[in-house]
Amino acid sequence: MHEIVRREEMASGDVILNEIEAPLIAKKAKPGQFVILKADERGERIPLTMADADPERGTITVIYKVVGKSTELFKSLEEGDSYQDAVGPLGQPTHLEKVGTVACVGGGTGVAVLYPITRGLKGAGNRIISIIGARTADRIILEEEMRAVSDELFVCTDDGSRGHHGFVTEILKRVLEVETLNLAVAVGPVLMMKLVSDMTRPYDVKTIVSLNPIMIDGTGMCGGCRVLVDGENKFACVDGPEFDGHKVDFDQLMQRLDAYQSEERESSKAHRCRLDE
């Protein structure tokens, strides 16, 4: 059992932070790695890239968006409640080295995953230009944390309620025009990662994206998380979750992420019916 020692609601309750007791995982976790959580006996195994890990407190932190049955169930867990299962750290850690100037681009809940990577890249001695965005001002998460590990920080909202009125890619375009970037990191909705990768390609700026496809075991056993990278199948759980954005087949990834759309609806509906009873 893995107790939730801290729980916060962000983005008007759409996004939840859980700090969870998991000493063995916390001891090993590195930026870029993920865990799989399962709430109870009947629950799904949900992969979540960690936002933080504290080996001294023996805790890991995940920040997730409530999108379906399983994340609704996660959301219903209070401080003091426990996840039945937590396993990790899984996947390859981010390769953290000094390369020069790095653009860190995050959209929505992706900022939660971007933050430890940004912190690590800053710690490695890089100059960091961060661009974070969300639909509205209240959906911007970890702004202060990101500011603390960035040399420059730009905030964007789709509706203009905070910072730049528009998409992160618009700011990135400006940055690419005036700066010589040595690396870009993009974490967020698949479409955003695709657009960022398309934008950096002509500038020949290597771009790392962090993927979160559908998977079961997280150890290379099911092959559900296979992603076409440079024409070759990779397993996001063991070869990733980070890949070269210029080589990922994002269109296929989007289709594969929608594989269980109708089941998702059925499951959420059944869940709400049970809650109403």
Partner: peptide, 10 residues
């Protein structure tokens, strides 16, 4: 046993 269990299967 979906949806009694949460994991779907095609």
């Amino acid at each position: 046993q979906f949806p009694e269990y949460d994991t779907p299967i095609p």
